[in-house]
Write a protein that binds this DNA or RNA. Structure first.
Length: 414
DNA sequence: TCTGGGGTCCTAGGACCC
DNA sequence: TCTGGGGTCCTAGGACCC
């Protein structure tokens, strides 16, 4: 929503929500929308009435644009030269020096700098572990009195912060775990942190124990920078309507292969393993359900789109059952290796490998410059996902004329 | 009527080995 | 009738994250 407010300043101080693909769910919302009782993750159709009666601005997500905003924020943070670790599109960790005189002030300086550089409001939490820093950031975001930065650096602040944090709000403790912990009488982050080691191991697994250690000030989350390259890449979609035909699913698989191929080549990565999955609509419990997946090791690491598409279609043929209405499908490549990890096979035609590489270079370059007109793709992709997924908010309805006077609605720029 | 898309990590259990 | 003990590797599924 902060990104949208940059290009649509009239959204300032107004309730606004951003929808997922297919305009299915609320994935982001302004504080004003939260105040109306809208929660992240709810299906849009359940709040449509509320949205119209209260004049909530509704936007289809523009993820390319959000990525660009994110890059501006991360560039600003990188200039601080403090070991930036980008955690997600809207979150990052910095490693501050131990001898920093005024961490509080520095936190506010960071928030101010990002606002100046990128026009995105951010909250800063400072503590000795990542999990505690996220507890602190939650306070900085929630209470304007912190002016954007909250610091936990002594026992009394630690006790206060953890006692005011519901256990389910701790990073790493989700719905299942927090329900179980509450049944055990553990309601706050402090209750959890004060458990003995034996109780912790009885109640949670290794991941949970790590969270417990972090809350007690023992840093044990690995540096993201230490991780090797990407372990998997996925492309998947929910379809606008139920898909019955194998041909349309094949077309979708080819489109996924197209997306994944580009992403792999962009990072100079090669896939060693490939998996496809298809599923009927799990929310329609009255109709018969089927979901399945299949995977295989590729004969050699690849990032050549036609080879990815061919393998994906072979796997699809193995699990496809006719008579079901498929609502979702996807393609995953796993165990991605760098170019240096690829050895030509004993009988490989080296000139063919080189030809394929050059072909992909040309298509990638063309698709970068022709993205608005669709670019060029393998023929098996057909129209790609165009006829299978919804393209933007209310794109099938009259975009603005039918909208009530006080409701702002924006079409996706696509 | 209408319910996203992208990831990581851990665990249990089975197949297989000697 | 009576059938060990120690491993590794792989996979499916669940829980969590944004």
């Amino acid at each position: 929503v902060s990104c949208e407010r940059i290009r649509y300043p009239e959204l300032e101080r107004r309730p606004a929500i951003v929808l997922s693909n297919n305009d299915g769910c609320v994935v982001a919302l302004s504080n004003e929308a939260k105040a109306l009782g809208i929660r992240r993750g709810v299906p849009f159709f359940k709040i449509r009435g509320l949205v119209e009666s209260r004049g909530v601005a509704v936007l289809s997500g523009s993820h390319g644009y959000y990525s660009e905003c994110s890059r501006r924020v991360m560039r600003s943070l990188a200039e601080l030269d403090a070991g930036l670790e980008v955690y997600s599109v809207d979150e990052a960790f910095l490693h501050l020096p131990d001898d920093l005189g005024d961490p509080d002030g520095f936190g506010r300086y960071i928030a101010g700098k990002v606002w100046t550089d990128a026009r995105i409001p951010v909250s800063v939490g400072i503590a000795c572990t990542k999990t505690l820093a996220k507890v602190a950031a939650r306070f900085a975001k929630k209470y304007p009195g912190y002016h954007g930065a909250c610091l936990i650096d002594n026992e009394s602040k630690w006790l206060k912060a953890l006692s005011l944090t519901p256990v389910g709000d701790v990073w790493g403790i989700g719905r299942r775990l927090s329900r179980m912990l509450r049944l055990e009488g553990i309601n706050t982050a402090l209750d959890f942190a004060m458990l003995g080691h034996d109780d912790v191991r009885r109640l949670v697994n290794l991941t949970g124990e790590r969270t417990w250690r972090e809350l007690r000030g023992e840093a044990c989350m690995s540096n993201l920078a230490d991780d090797e390259e990407g372990k998997s890449v996925m492309s998947s979609r929910s379809f606008e309507r139920d898909i019955y035909s194998l041909n349309e699913l094949r077309q979708a698989m080819c489109a996924f292969a197209d997306i994944i191929g580009r992403k792999l080549r962009g990072n100079n990565g090669y896939a060693v393993e490939i998996e496809v999955f298809i599923a009927t609509n799990p929310f329609r419990s009255e109709s018969s359900q089927y979901r399945n997946s299949a995977s295989m090791h590729l004969p050699e690491p690849i990032n050549f789109t036609p080879s990815l598409a061919k393998a994906a279609c072979q796997l699809l043929d193995k699990i496809y059952r006719s008579g079901y209405g498929y609502k979702r499908a996807g393609l995953v490549v796993k165990r991605i290796v760098p170019a240096s990890g690829v050895q030509p096979g004993l009988f490989d035609d080296v000139s063919l490998i080189e030809k394929r590489r050059r072909l992909m270079n040309v298509t990638d370059a063309l698709n970068t410059s022709l993205s608005d007109s669709g670019g060029i793709h393998i023929a098996a992709m057909g129209d790609g996902l165009a006829g299978l997924v919804r393209s933007g908010f209310h794109a099938k309805e009259a975009p603005t004329s039918s909208v009530e006077s006080d409701v702002v609605s924006f079409r996706s720029p696509h």
